[in-house]
Write a protein that binds this DNA or RNA. Structure first.
Lengths: 228, 228
DNA sequence: TGTACATCAGTGAACGCGCGTTCACTGATGTAC
DNA sequence: TGTACATCAGTGAACGCGCGTTCACTGATGTAC
């Protein structure tokens, strides 16, 4: 879809159709984006999605309250669209972390650094995910949990793969992954509103905690093998 | 403070004073309690403290909205009083767990069982703590974090004590305690709205996760000693 | 190409609602003597 | 003991406010031929 001068005209049917779709539909997409950005912009440590009002979001986006309904049937629908974007960010983050680990090694440290970097660059998107994960609305909880679940699954796969490569084994990879993700997300929530210095301390703590879980899982696996 | 028949009269000044304080002040305490219970009763998986209204709480407690101000200057003040009670529950829980561990051993398993039992018996009080820990109001976050911090400190002390008793050592006791509390509280939040069967599974998972952290911490300590 | 018609994103007025908070009050309970 | 006065938890009316949602509309953009 390309943007063209609104005054231009075209002749062929297919092209004309794609053109008109482009301009009118694209303006609509732009307004939709403005609404989502407006909602995101209102989030902070002291304001959750639940405290936003439709009128407020519309006002911030520069449209009449009634126009909101041209894009979403209710405010929660907009919120769920944001959660989807959060899921995309999580998957990007995971790809990025894998790439860096392949290059630099040191899986835990690199992963935590990458996570914190994404957190900083998408603060309010992560804020939404971290809050609504345990929030008050069932659809939100379900949607966020699905994204995190996907994240956990991929992490568990990676853990098994790394263990194989190093000829180590671990027990209950998925459980290990869940515990790690719980710690990462909780410290992430803290890091969001921490000073840079506090954030560095949080990163150090988090890396040590993850290492404990990993080493513990490997030690337990060794004990279990010894018993068999 | 004893409750007496409101019609009764007394003579000595001191006694009369303590008596009058008892009845009038006690009725006030009863209304205050009704307000707090009303607020607690409204909490659920789908309703956080932030969605309550002063009028609603007063209605549920059976008093006029305006009477609310005889007890709290705003709704948040009531909420913070509830967080205080949550802190009391946490300290009771810890004492109870210690007593049982002294009797039955198996610190991790017993602690998790005790925690889950308290969770079931004070569901909405814990709901409040677990939600507001990462909630939208700074005073709430601060108050809940203070209670949890106290909990972490006591747990860290216990960990060191247990390790000494068994002639094992661990690294970074406080960090271990923090990771454990994070996992316990997160699984606790999940357990609140789980079926009994799911709850049992959560308990098992949680015990394994805590064991991994503990074993990991001990293994790391051994490595560190080996290096020195 | 030009023309007649269709689509539809955005609008402003209007609605009823529950909210937090104020105020002056009532009357039972408590105090002083 | 009785009496006159003080305290204060609880009240009902009233307020202004921002909210979500409806409706009939406008006019630019798009389509058909």
């Amino acid at each position: 879809m390309t943007i063209k001068n609104p005054g231009a005209k075209m002749h062929g049917l297919t092209e004309a159709w794609s053109y008109t779709l482009a301009t009118r539909a694209e303006q609509k997409l732009r307004t939709r984006r403005a609404l989502m950005d407006a909602a995101l912009a209102q989030l902070s440590a002291d304001r959750g999605f639940g405290s936003l009002s439709l009128r407020e979001v519309a006002r911030e986006a520069g449209i009449a309250p009634t126009s909101f309904y041209r894009h979403f049937s209710e405010l929660d629908e907009l919120g769920l669209a944001l959660v989807d974007e959060g899921g995309v960010a999580l998957r990007q983050l995971m790809r990025q972390a894998r790439k860096r680990i392949a290059r630099d090694g040191s899986a835990i440290s690199t992963s935590v650094d990458t996570f914190m970097e994404y957190l900083g660059n998408n603060a309010n998107l992560f804020r939404l995910m971290l809050r609504e994960r345990t929030g008050v609305s069932k659809p939100f909880r379900t949607a966020v949990k699905a994204e995190i679940d996907h994240f956990v699954t991929e992490l568990a796969d990676d853990l098994v793969r790394f263990a194989d490569e190093q000829n180590k084994s671990l027990t209950e990879a998925r459980l290990v992954a869940e515990a790690m993700v719980t710690l990462v997300f909780n410290q992430g929530a803290e890091a969001l509103d921490a000073t840079p210095k506090e954030r560095d301390e949080l990163k150090l703590k988090l890396k040590t905690e993850l290492r404990m879980i990993l080493v513990g899982s490997q030690t337990l696996a060794r004990w279990q093998q010894g018993q068999e």
